Simulated scan of single mutants.
Amino acid sequence: MIPPLLAGLSLPGADELLDGAVVVTQPLHTRFRGTTVREAMLLHGPAGWAEFSPFPEYDAGESARWLAAAIEAGWHGWPAPVRETVPVNATVPAVRPGDVGRVLESFGAVPAVKVKVAEAGQDVDDDVARVAEVRRLLPEAALRVDANQGWDHATALAALGRLAGYGLEYAEQPVAGIEGLARLREALDRAGIEVRLAADESVRKETDPVAVARAGAADLVVVKVQPLGGVRRALGIVEAAGLDAVVSSALDTSVGIAAGVALAASLPRLPHACGLGTVALFAQDVADPPWVPDAGRLRPGPAPVPVARGALRAGEDRQRWWRDRLRAAWAVLEAARPA
């Protein structure tokens, strides 16, 4: 049974949420998800700091889940962890092979590496060269690739056939949609290509992980706290899906990463390193020190105090834009509350 948004949790008023809220702008070292700058609204509630950072193209309905996650974090807190540390992977954007070493250095020692592939303007040869360089530099690390649903079926089948030789742990969302994943999984089996599939973009909504499991479309699901509406709700969704989960970042600041760590630390099973080391991709973070892994691990705990929020504060026009956005998302949550 998947819990509704804010199940059992109170909904503060919009004015209370906005009291002390600030929008920050964080530059990235390297283009990621098509951007070089990440904006986020930081909220402060009785339970601590929280992050509200749906991507700019998301409407009020989708953003409401991100706001529910922020309300949980700042006004209610998270469930108690069942483990003391969480393993974390490095993330290598779609850079040239010669730049792979520089990117990996920013993460330090890690148990696993996720390599971005299927970048617009690049081809499978570029992807293979990047993965090969990661494997050369870190021969013992677990290795997974993330296509962000950028390949069609034929390209994915051919690419994974070539990349399987580098010992992939799994391939994350190589094609679009649940049906596309199921079709590719069957084709990989027929071709004898031993690469497990993980669903990411196909689990943006609460019903998606269950649909993925029913369709036999993937071996595991990638879950993110903000898009799924909070730690408690994500735990319920993973349980309903019945698949192993990898917790990943939505390109969060250190404040949002704390929520991801809280989820990963609360899962009954955590067989894979999580994608929660993305703060290393920022040229500057709101926390000092930033929430980056120590020897490939993060410890659960309260969200850090964003001490650099003044230096990274966005302009007044962006402050107003985000305040209006939060109010619109809040209205969706308020309308969904039981009478």
Results as ranks from 00 to 15, higher is better:
residue 40 A to E: 10
residue 318 R to I: 07
residue 104 L to H: 11
residue 64 A to G: 13
residue 156 A to W: 07
residue 225 V to F: 03
residue 5 L to R: 12
residue 310 G to W: 15
residue 239 E to P: 00
residue 298 L to S: 00
residue 116 K to W: 01
residue 54 P to F: 08
residue 28 L to T: 12
residue 103 V to Y: 01
residue 283 A to I: 06
residue 56 P to I: 06
residue 82 V to R: 14
residue 328 A to S: 15
residue 306 P to G: 07
residue 100 V to P: 13
residue 176 A to S: 15
residue 264 A to L: 11
residue 70 A to D: 05
residue 175 V to K: 11
residue 324 D to W: 08
residue 5 L to A: 11
residue 191 A to C: 13
residue 122 Q to S: 12
residue 161 G to R: 13
residue 175 V to M: 14
residue 89 N to E: 08
residue 1 M to W: 06
residue 233 R to L: 03
residue 52 F to E: 05
residue 113 V to F: 04
residue 36 T to A: 09
residue 213 A to N: 11
residue 156 A to L: 14
residue 26 Q to W: 00
residue 73 A to Q: 12
residue 157 L to D: 09
residue 108 G to D: 07
residue 300 P to Q: 01
residue 307 V to A: 11
residue 96 R to V: 03
residue 211 A to Q: 06
residue 222 V to F: 02
residue 255 V to Y: 02
residue 232 R to C: 12
residue 225 V to T: 15
residue 218 A to I: 02
residue 273 A to K: 01
residue 167 G to H: 07
residue 186 E to V: 12
residue 325 R to K: 14
residue 42 L to Q: 09
residue 312 L to I: 14
residue 256 G to R: 05
residue 21 A to C: 11
residue 184 L to C: 07
residue 265 A to R: 05
residue 131 V to D: 03
residue 172 E to R: 14
residue 133 E to K: 13
residue 323 R to S: 12
residue 295 A to D: 14
residue 47 A to K: 11
residue 35 T to I: 13
residue 173 Q to R: 15
residue 252 D to Q: 13
residue 3 P to Y: 10
residue 313 R to C: 13
residue 317 D to N: 03
residue 66 W to H: 15
residue 314 A to F: 04
residue 160 L to R: 15
residue 211 A to T: 08
residue 254 S to H: 04
residue 114 K to G: 01
residue 269 R to W: 01
residue 161 G to N: 14
residue 321 W to K: 10
residue 109 A to K: 10
residue 135 R to N: 04
residue 323 R to Y: 00
residue 24 V to Q: 02
residue 88 V to D: 01
residue 48 G to W: 11
residue 261 V to N: 09
residue 292 V to L: 04
residue 203 V to T: 14
residue 285 D to A: 02
residue 80 A to H: 08
residue 107 F to S: 14
residue 329 A to L: 01
